[in-house]
């Protein structure tokens, strides 16, 4: 292989990795909510978008990037918690289309309100790192300080979530109340509170991805910033099986890398089409997802 081809492949893999961790994070936040409450949150893109707008409204009061990011995270936690308490709580145990419809409605309302307040023109956020690619043998490699920040922050968040679920008492309670809510309740776990906490967590994960995506100089923050990302994230989550957090992340990263090659060798239009084909094929071959062990559902 000549140097050009090698550098092109490396650039595609690295560029795909950057998008892939984002898709993986969206998939992860979908899986977190799906596992614990059986709701596929179609507003998973819009809720963090709204929180990010609120947090970065502080920019006009001369707060810095990091202060705004922290504010957005806090608002995200609040939005997630309030949504669960006020909107979603009445939907548990209802037919499965009810939460879908309500969350689609919530998506429209949030996007419309955000556009009404902040207009639908892209708002550029100050990027804390340069997004000029490093060079390898005279070719750019799709890796800049900013993408390193993007990938690094995503990995940190994923590890934090994993650690929370695996090593803390709270994580144990979260897993227990998702797996067997009745038994957990009998054993003294406050299941209702933990469901709220799950929504707060997943919205916070969403806020991190939204900040990462919209700090990118080329996209900026718009009310529709997460629409496309949500579609790819859902596809990753469905391919991974909706039940498995690890599957969601692996599927997200793989999807990101595949789509980067598609964009490079075909065009960017073909990305969503290829993703759709991947989803159809995956669902036909392994209907319960590539990463879930086959299991019985209720009878």
């Amino acid at each position: 292989m000549d140097a050009f081809l090698t550098s092109r492949i490396i650039a595609d893999v690295l560029g795909g990795l950057t998008n892939g961790v984002i898709y993986g994070m969206v998939a992860l936040s979908l899986v977190l909510i799906w596992r614990s409450t059986g709701v596929l949150n179609f507003a998973q893109g819009a809720m963090p978008m709204f929180a990010t707008y609120v947090g970065f409204a502080l920019l006009s009061y001369h707060f810095g990037y990091w202060a705004c990011a922290v504010a957005a995270l806090i608002v995200g936690l609040a939005v997630g918690g309030l949504t669960e308490r006020l909107v979603v709580r009445g939907l548990y145990g209802k037919p499965e289309i009810n939460p879908i419809v309500v969350m689609v409605g919530f998506l429209i309302v949030l996007e419309a309100v955000a556009a009404a307040i902040w207009s639908s023109f892209p708002r550029s956020l100050p990027s804390p790192f340069s997004s000029i690619d490093w060079q390898l043998g005279g070719h750019p490699v799709s890796l800049s300080p900013f993408t390193v920040y993007e990938i690094g922050a995503s990995i940190v968040v994923m590890l934090l979530v994993a650690a929370l679920f695996r090593f803390t008492n709270l994580g144990l309670q979260l897993r227990a109340s998702a797996l067997a809510p009745e038994v957990s309740r009998l054993l003294g776990v406050r299941v209702g509170r933990l469901l709220t906490l799950g929504w707060m967590l997943s919205t916070a994960v969403g806020v991190v991805t939204t900040i990462l995506v919209s700090s990118n100089f080329f996209t900026g923050l718009t009310p529709q910033v997460n629409d496309g990302i949500f579609a790819f994230g859902f596809i990753a989550a469905a391919v991974g099986g909706l039940e498995s957090p690890v599957g969601a992340i692996v599927a997200g990263v793989s999807l990101g890398i595949i789509l980067q090659f598609v964009q490079d060798y075909l065009n960017s239009n073909a990305q969503i089409i290829v993703a759709l084909v991947v989803l159809i094929v995956a669902l036909m071959v392994r209907p319960n997802g590539v990463f879930t062990k086959s299991s019985l559902r209720r009878v």
Binding site: E96, I235, L242, I273, A275, L276, L279
Partner: peptide
């Protein structure tokens, strides 16, 4: 499949 797969997949089709 049960669950929201059809909703999600048709969403992907609409976006695509």
């Amino acid at each position: 499949l049960r669950g929201p797969y059809l909703a999600g997949m048709t969403l992907a089709f609409a976006v695509a």
